[in-house]
Amino acid sequence: MITLKHPLIIVVGAGGVGKTTLAAALALEKARSGDDTLVMTFDPSLRLKDTLGIGEHEDADEVEVDAGTSGRLTASLLDARRTFDRLIESYAPDEETKKRILSNRFYDHLSGSLAGMMEYMASERLFEVANSGRFDTIILDTPPTRQALDFLQAPERIVGFLDTGGPKMAAKSWFDTEGKLRATKKLGILGRNVEAFFDRMVGLELLRDMAEFFQAFAPFFDGFRERALEVQKLLRSPDTVFVLISGPGPQRVADTLFFARKLKEAGYHLGPVIVNRVHPGEVQTGMVPPGTERDGRQLLKWLGSRDAEGVNHLRDLLGTSHQLVELGLRMDEPTDIKALGELGATLLG
């Protein structure tokens, strides 16, 4: 159906459309064709974890999948928190900084809430393996996000965040030697009022703790920026292709088009669009929804017509610039090697 020769394939789409399964299927087929292949995934189902063997080795970064492929098939389960911890372990300039960060009472929560930090960590990991030259093909499954492009934009957001204030201010230290807020001091009486306000609202103690956290992080910021820019270059390189997965039905069309447009605007190379789990059938005009809810055959006919309409609509709107591929709803969800292999062969066959 489709051809993907790129060394880096990024699978994107809204939550619940089957990204992880399709990423695994593509990887399996690539490995069968002889490529040494890595599939990086975030959130596989228990069965898929078992199939890939990443269930038993939660602590391992990479697991070899024994699927009888001619190329090596490796699976990697991304755990952002672990990557984050490791990053601090390996980049902290000294023991003391490391300790300061890991023992800060905000670390646990901030590492999760700091805009895009987790996603950034994942892309950093991607950069690492892409540069290692150990694989012919890397397939990256992207994490479920509310805003579809969060993951891809994380590195840019981090750079933006670094350039606009926050950490710069943190690096400068929020407080002077008398324990007064620097940012408000130069404002005179007004500044003292602002400081009093912060104190009354959240307590200066808390601000001090947060400031310390950011300061402890300051030594990382330059490295972050450098690597974030490298990751962006990698994501926009002609060697990288994005495969966009969509759910069926007219409601998904708008989401998918939005996603496609955003990807292109951001300068990424959008390859094929895959509409997954399409109910079988054709558009039937003037079909009245069946009166009874209990008739599964009528329901499936209606769903088939609805999905066909959605696919047609999407095809019209996408134009000829992108290949649109439909995958039918299967009898069972593909979770074992055999079913994944069939799916992969269908896609890349």
């Binding site: 905000f106 901030l110 809430s113 940012a183 404002l187 306000f197 959240v202 947060m210």
Partner: peptide
Amino acid sequence: LVKRVLASPIHQQFTEAAPG
């Protein structure tokens, strides 16, 4: 004062980063 606080990087950064 409202303008100052809302424009203050401390307010902006705090509300973005303060967990929860």
